[in-house]
Protein backbone atom coordinates (compact mmCIF):
# COMPACT_ATOMS: atom_id res chain seq x y z
CA UNK A 1 0.00 0.00 0.00
CA UNK A 2 1.29 3.42 -0.83
CA UNK A 3 0.17 6.89 0.03
CA UNK A 4 1.17 9.89 -2.03
CA UNK A 5 1.90 13.36 -0.80
CA UNK A 6 -1.25 15.40 -0.41
CA UNK A 7 -3.39 12.27 -0.38
CA UNK A 8 -6.03 11.63 2.25
CA UNK A 9 -6.84 7.95 2.63
CA UNK A 10 -9.65 6.52 4.69
CA UNK A 11 -9.39 3.06 6.23
CA UNK A 12 -12.42 0.94 6.97
CA UNK A 13 -12.92 -2.62 8.07
CA UNK A 14 -14.66 -4.77 10.63
CA UNK A 15 -13.64 -4.72 14.25
CA UNK A 16 -10.44 -6.63 14.68
CA UNK A 17 -9.35 -6.15 11.08
CA UNK A 18 -6.28 -4.33 12.25
CA UNK A 19 -7.08 -0.69 11.50
CA UNK A 20 -5.80 0.74 14.76
CA UNK A 21 -2.88 -1.63 14.70
CA UNK A 22 -1.88 -0.44 11.25
CA UNK A 23 -1.89 3.15 12.37
CA UNK A 24 0.13 2.31 15.44
CA UNK A 25 2.72 0.45 13.41
CA UNK A 26 3.16 3.44 11.10
CA UNK A 27 3.36 5.74 14.10
CA UNK A 28 6.10 3.43 15.48
CA UNK A 29 4.10 2.74 18.61
CA UNK A 30 4.07 -0.94 17.69
CA UNK A 31 6.59 -3.08 15.86
CA UNK A 32 5.36 -5.27 13.00
CA UNK A 33 5.85 -9.02 13.21
CA UNK A 34 6.45 -9.08 9.46
CA UNK A 35 6.82 -6.65 6.65
CA UNK A 36 8.33 -3.20 6.42
CA UNK A 37 7.31 0.34 5.96
CA UNK A 38 8.80 3.68 5.11
CA UNK A 39 7.59 7.16 5.89
CA UNK A 40 9.17 9.89 3.74
CA UNK A 41 11.96 7.45 3.07
CA UNK A 42 12.58 6.64 6.72
CA UNK A 43 12.38 3.01 7.76
CA UNK A 44 9.90 2.30 10.54
CA UNK A 45 12.28 0.26 12.68
CA UNK A 46 15.72 1.58 11.86
CA UNK A 47 14.85 5.27 11.59
CA UNK A 48 12.07 5.37 14.16
CA UNK A 49 13.03 8.76 15.60
CA UNK A 50 13.03 10.34 12.13
CA UNK A 51 9.65 8.79 11.41
CA UNK A 52 8.27 10.36 14.57
CA UNK A 53 9.38 13.76 13.39
CA UNK A 54 7.11 13.47 10.37
CA UNK A 55 4.16 11.73 11.91
CA UNK A 56 1.35 12.91 14.18
CA UNK A 57 -0.91 10.34 15.82
CA UNK A 58 -4.39 11.09 17.13
CA UNK A 59 -5.54 8.18 19.29
CA UNK A 60 -8.87 7.38 20.89
CA UNK A 61 -7.61 8.43 24.28
CA UNK A 62 -6.57 12.07 24.38
CA UNK A 63 -3.40 11.27 26.36
CA UNK A 64 -3.21 14.47 28.38
CA UNK A 65 -1.90 15.36 31.83
CA UNK A 66 -4.91 16.15 33.91
CA UNK A 67 -3.18 18.22 36.55
CA UNK A 68 -1.65 20.55 34.00
CA UNK A 69 -3.51 23.33 32.25
CA UNK A 70 -4.30 23.31 28.55
CA UNK A 71 -1.45 25.68 27.86
CA UNK A 72 0.96 23.68 29.98
CA UNK A 73 0.10 20.48 28.16
CA UNK A 74 0.96 22.19 24.90
CA UNK A 75 4.12 23.70 26.35
CA UNK A 76 5.26 20.23 27.27
CA UNK A 77 4.42 18.94 23.82
CA UNK A 78 6.25 21.82 22.17
CA UNK A 79 9.37 21.21 24.21
CA UNK A 80 9.33 17.50 23.52
CA UNK A 81 8.77 18.12 19.82
CA UNK A 82 11.54 20.66 19.76
CA UNK A 83 9.38 23.43 18.34
CA UNK A 84 8.64 26.96 19.45
CA UNK A 85 6.01 27.70 22.07
CA UNK A 86 4.73 30.68 20.10
CA UNK A 87 2.19 28.60 18.27
CA UNK A 88 0.33 27.59 21.42
CA UNK A 89 -1.99 30.56 21.92
CA UNK A 90 -3.19 30.73 18.30
CA UNK A 91 -3.86 27.01 18.10
CA UNK A 92 -5.85 27.03 21.33
CA UNK A 93 -8.01 29.80 19.93
CA UNK A 94 -8.48 27.88 16.74
CA UNK A 95 -9.92 24.82 18.48
CA UNK A 96 -12.13 26.99 20.64
CA UNK A 97 -10.28 26.48 23.91
CA UNK A 98 -8.93 30.02 24.21
CA UNK A 99 -11.18 30.73 27.16
CA UNK A 100 -9.93 27.68 29.03
CA UNK A 101 -6.25 28.06 28.32
CA UNK A 102 -5.28 28.29 31.98
CA UNK A 103 -7.64 25.71 33.32
CA UNK A 104 -6.58 22.25 34.34
CA UNK A 105 -7.51 19.45 32.01
CA UNK A 106 -9.06 17.57 34.90
CA UNK A 107 -12.05 19.86 34.62
CA UNK A 108 -12.46 19.44 30.86
CA UNK A 109 -15.28 17.59 29.21
CA UNK A 110 -14.46 14.74 26.88
CA UNK A 111 -15.08 16.96 23.88
CA UNK A 112 -12.75 19.64 25.21
CA UNK A 113 -10.04 17.07 25.82
CA UNK A 114 -10.30 15.85 22.26
CA UNK A 115 -10.01 19.38 20.98
CA UNK A 116 -6.90 19.86 23.04
CA UNK A 117 -5.45 16.69 21.58
CA UNK A 118 -6.32 18.05 18.15
CA UNK A 119 -4.64 21.34 19.03
CA UNK A 120 -1.51 19.43 19.97
CA UNK A 121 -1.61 17.73 16.59
CA UNK A 122 -2.08 21.01 14.76
CA UNK A 123 0.78 22.59 16.59
CA UNK A 124 3.06 19.74 15.62
CA UNK A 125 2.03 20.14 11.97
CA UNK A 126 3.31 16.78 10.81
CA UNK A 127 3.73 15.69 7.22
CA UNK A 128 1.66 12.57 7.81
CA UNK A 129 -1.47 12.62 9.96
CA UNK A 130 -2.62 9.37 11.51
CA UNK A 131 -6.08 9.61 12.99
CA UNK A 132 -7.84 6.76 14.75
CA UNK A 133 -11.63 7.19 14.38
CA UNK A 134 -11.47 10.95 14.91
CA UNK A 135 -15.12 11.52 14.06
CA UNK A 136 -16.62 9.14 16.61
CA UNK A 137 -18.75 10.78 19.28
CA UNK A 138 -17.68 14.26 18.27
CA UNK A 139 -20.02 17.22 18.10
CA UNK A 140 -20.53 18.95 14.71
CA UNK A 141 -18.02 21.70 15.45
CA UNK A 142 -15.50 19.06 16.44
CA UNK A 143 -16.07 17.17 13.20
CA UNK A 144 -15.58 20.37 11.28
CA UNK A 145 -12.32 20.97 13.13
CA UNK A 146 -11.06 17.53 12.19
CA UNK A 147 -11.85 18.21 8.54
CA UNK A 148 -10.12 21.57 8.76
CA UNK A 149 -7.00 19.97 10.14
CA UNK A 150 -6.98 17.47 7.32
CA UNK A 151 -7.58 20.11 4.65
CA UNK A 152 -4.86 22.33 6.07
CA UNK A 153 -2.44 19.50 5.99
CA UNK A 154 -3.29 18.59 2.42
CA UNK A 155 -2.90 22.15 1.26
CA UNK A 156 0.55 22.23 2.78
CA UNK A 157 1.48 19.03 0.92
CA UNK A 158 0.93 16.65 3.81
CA UNK A 159 -0.93 13.35 3.78
CA UNK A 160 -3.36 11.68 6.10
CA UNK A 161 -4.51 8.18 7.01
CA UNK A 162 -7.86 8.28 8.74
CA UNK A 163 -9.45 5.22 10.30
CA UNK A 164 -13.21 5.41 9.94
CA UNK A 165 -15.92 3.64 11.80
CA UNK A 166 -18.01 3.53 8.65
CA UNK A 167 -17.61 4.68 5.07
CA UNK A 168 -19.94 7.62 5.42
CA UNK A 169 -17.63 9.49 7.75
CA UNK A 170 -15.13 11.87 6.26
CA UNK A 171 -17.13 12.44 3.11
CA UNK A 172 -15.75 15.17 0.96
CA UNK A 173 -12.37 15.04 2.58
CA UNK A 174 -11.07 11.66 1.54
CA UNK A 175 -9.40 10.92 -1.77
CA UNK A 176 -9.87 7.18 -1.52
CA UNK A 177 -10.86 4.46 0.89
CA UNK A 178 -8.99 1.29 1.66
CA UNK A 179 -10.63 -1.71 3.25
CA UNK A 180 -8.84 -4.00 5.66
CA UNK A 181 -9.80 -7.54 6.49
CA UNK A 182 -7.90 -9.85 8.81
CA UNK A 183 -4.88 -7.64 8.80
CA UNK A 184 -4.48 -7.33 5.04
CA UNK A 185 -5.74 -4.95 2.42
CA UNK A 186 -8.68 -6.72 0.86
CA UNK A 187 -10.07 -4.01 -1.31
CA UNK A 188 -9.63 -0.41 -2.28
CA UNK A 189 -12.01 1.88 -4.08
CA UNK A 190 -9.62 1.66 -6.99
CA UNK A 191 -10.16 -2.08 -7.13
CA UNK A 192 -6.65 -3.37 -6.40
CA UNK A 193 -5.82 -5.48 -3.36
CA UNK A 194 -2.15 -5.76 -2.63
CA UNK A 195 -1.10 -7.28 0.70
CA UNK A 196 0.09 -4.77 3.18
CA UNK A 197 3.84 -4.95 3.09
CA UNK A 198 4.91 -1.55 2.06
CA UNK A 199 3.85 1.85 3.13
CA UNK A 200 5.59 4.94 1.94
CA UNK A 201 4.30 8.47 1.99
CA UNK A 202 5.59 10.18 -1.06
CA UNK A 203 9.19 9.02 -0.94
CA UNK A 204 10.86 6.14 -2.71
CA UNK A 205 10.62 2.90 -0.73
CA UNK A 206 14.24 1.95 -1.14
Amino acid sequence: MEVERGEVVGIVGHNGSGKSTLLRVIATALRPSAGEGWVFGNHLLRDAIEVRRHVGFLAHAPGLYEDLTATENLIFAARMLGISEDGIAPVLDRVGLGHARNERVRGFSAGMQRRLALARLMMANPGLLLMDEPYNNFDPQGIELVNEVIQDSRRAGGSALVVLHDRRQGEGVLDRVVELGRGAVIGTSAGSSKPLTLVSAGGMPH
Partner: peptide, 16 residues
Protein backbone atom coordinates in the same frame (compact mmCIF):
# COMPACT_ATOMS: atom_id res chain seq x y z
CA UNK B 1 0.70 10.03 36.04
CA UNK B 2 1.44 8.83 32.52
CA UNK B 3 -0.70 5.74 32.87
CA UNK B 4 -3.72 7.54 34.34
CA UNK B 5 -4.28 9.79 31.38
CA UNK B 6 -3.04 7.27 28.81
CA UNK B 7 -0.26 9.76 28.24
CA UNK B 8 2.49 7.18 27.96
CA UNK B 9 1.81 6.48 24.30
CA UNK B 10 2.03 10.13 23.18
CA UNK B 11 5.13 10.49 25.35
CA UNK B 12 6.84 7.67 23.51
CA UNK B 13 5.85 9.07 20.12
CA UNK B 14 7.77 12.32 20.39
CA UNK B 15 11.00 12.31 18.36
CA UNK B 16 12.93 12.12 21.61
Amino acid sequence: LELDGAALEPLLLYPA
